[in-house]
Design a protein around this nucleic acid. Structure first.
Length: 489
RNA sequence: CGGGAUGUGGCUCAGCCCGGUAGAGCACUCGCAUGGGGUGCGAGGGGUCGCAGGUUCAAAUCCUGUCAUCCCGACCA
């Protein structure tokens, strides 16, 4: 039925690309590694953004905007930070073009005195700014978020999952005490978990990154990790406790109540359009995109059927009333009464685009006061009394939302394994994939060895669950608790 | 930056080996029929064959150069 979509069994990577294309979410742009986000994809992003933005405001944050360009010298102030991002920065060297016979070329006389970096993230320019805003403990905390685009010069890209330019939000906060900053880091991690699980219906594990996976410049990086249908992990969001690293690098100090001058404590946290990739890979099937009702740009579509003008008039009137009824109940509904596409074509189109609920109405329904209600997740449909439609649809949207989450969660459980030996580890990784809980001695060397030999990395040291100590599966040295290994996107 | 491949209507590609007036499918436009799961039939519009040079009476096709893109590997939210 879905003739343009490769099945997941056959080629998972191609299936993903087909979904993105057929659901009209995004496409490759003329610029290598960058994408055009199409209206369907952007509407989804706008819904995600709107929910998250509300959550940020509810936890006391304000939005602001900092420049796209960062003076080169700023980036070199925090040693770890430079090292982390140096290899993937776009650099602006000139400010002008000059006309030539064939078009234009860079005007060599316009070379910049200090080159500008297109932000890969904004810590540096933000901390340079905060320095001027903070003198006293009375100026703290500063709780700011910005919605922006950033650029990281990646070698290999994939639509939504890794592009050279992407959209995201980055929160940057400054605090008087370490505890307050740590609390903020954890609070935002929980905000992300709440959003991803309760709105995106994607189950996640919260954890701490190991040293090698940590954000450049952070003391601790907390993360939410999701598991995709193909058994690979996806980092869905990160929240960093930055300690006093940036405060020291940018000399951000305040005079405390006790009159002494101290460096401030910092956090930063972000999620990006990558979440859309995670959403697709968690719920969609071989027939197309599947969207959770809470974020779907269109939650319900009404498809009419008629053969002649007389039927058209009756069905349209019936449909319009239904449209108004659902709309006034706050449901995002579309009545697709276009006459230039066939009903069958529309069924397939909305299925591919992932609309959670479809209502079909034809002459027979008008006559009998009924309608056919179909759900996208299970692909089942049933005839409903006209008077019961609103209640049924409202109920169905909630049911689909929780069904998607539960299905994803059971799939994750089924793909989560616990191993005790390295042999067993390799075997499970090879044959099953998924999350693998194993003991690790805590050293970067062991982590690196596993990565080189198996391509699996430590996704996180989970915050919840079993904390029993043991011995490292590779070296036999003591291990504080099991950590999660997986191959990752 | 190493290894492999490809550039031909909007898209996917055939044609190239063996030079002879540019093709198919999909998409698009128009008409008629159709309409409860991608509808059928008919008519039509649209291409500097990546770019530059060369060989030839004649180049999408042969030769040289060049540019671009894609896939695989080293880096990553």
């Amino acid at each position: 039925m879905a003739k343009n979509i490769t099945s997941r069994d056959k080629d998972y990577a191609q299936w993903y690309l087909d979904i993105v294309k057929e659901a009209k979410l995004a496409e490759h742009s003329p610029v290598r590694g960058c994408m055009v986000i199409r209206p369907n994809g952007f509407a989804l992003w706008e819904n995600m953004k709107s929910v998250l933005d509300g959550m940020f405001k509810d936890t006391g944050h304000e939005n602001a905007y900092f420049p796209l360009f960062i003076p080169k010298s700023f980036l070199s102030k925090e040693a770890q930070h430079v090292e982390g991002f140096a290899k993937e920065c776009a650099v602006i060297t000139h400010s002008r073009l000059a006309s030539t016979e064939d078009g234009v070329e860079v005007d060599p006389t316009s070379k910049l005195e200090e080159e500008l970096i297109v932000r890969p993230t904004s810590e540096t320019i933000i901390w340079d700014t905060y320095k001027n805003w903070i003198q006293s403990y009375r100026d703290l905390p500063i709780l700011i978020n910005q919605w922006a685009n950033v650029v990281r010069w990646e070698m290999r890209t994939r639509l939504f999952l890794r592009t050279m330019e992407f959209l995201w939000q980055e929160g940057h906060t400054a605090h008087a005490t370490k505890q307050e900053a740590v609390d903020e880091t954890i609070q935002m991690l929980n905000v992300y978990r709440d959003f991803v699980e309760n709105y995106m219906a994607v189950p996640v594990i919260t954890g701490v990154k190991t040293e090698s996976e940590r954000f450049a410049g952070a003391e601790d990086t907390y993360c939410i990790e999701a598991l995709m249908q193909d058994g690979k992990a996806l980092q869905a969001g990160t929240s960093h406790f930055l300690g006093q690293n940036f405060a020291k690098a940018f000399d951000v100090t305040f005079q405390d109540k006790d009159s002494t001058v101290k460096h401030v404590w910092a956090t930063s946290w972000g999620v990006s359009t990558r979440l859309i990739g995670g959403l697709i890979m968690t719920h969609s099937d071989d027939d197309g995109l599947v969207l959770p009702p809470k974020l779907a740009p269109v939650q319900v579509v009404i498809v009419p059927i008629w053969k002649n003008d007389e039927q058209k008039a009756a069905v349209t009137e019936y449909g319009d009333k239904l449209l108004q009824e659902l709309k006034s109940a706050g449901i995002r509904v579309r009545f697709d009464d276009r006459d230039n596409y066939k009903p069958g074509w529309k069924f397939n189109q909305y299925e591919v685009e992932g609309v959670p609920v479809r209502i079909t109405i034809g002459p027979r329904d008008v006559e009998n006061n009924k309608a056919e209600v179909a759900r996208r997740d299970t692909k089942t449909k049933e005839l409903s009394e006209r008077t019961e439609i609103l209640a049924k649809v409202t109920n169905l949207l909630e049911e689909i939302q929780s069904n998607l989450f539960e299905t994803a969660k059971s799939r994750r459980e089924a793909m989560t394994h616990t191993v005790d030996t390295y042999e067993e580890f390799k075997q499970v990784l090879e044959e099953k994939g998924g999350f693998i809980y194993a003991h690790w001695d805590g050293t970067p060397e062991t982590e690196e060895k596993v990565k080189t030999e198996t391509k699996a990395t430590i996704r996180c040291i989970p915050l919840e669950g079993d904390k029993t100590p043991g011995t490292c599966m590779v070296t036999g040295n003591p291990s504080a608790q099991r950590v999660i290994f997986a191959k990752a996107y």
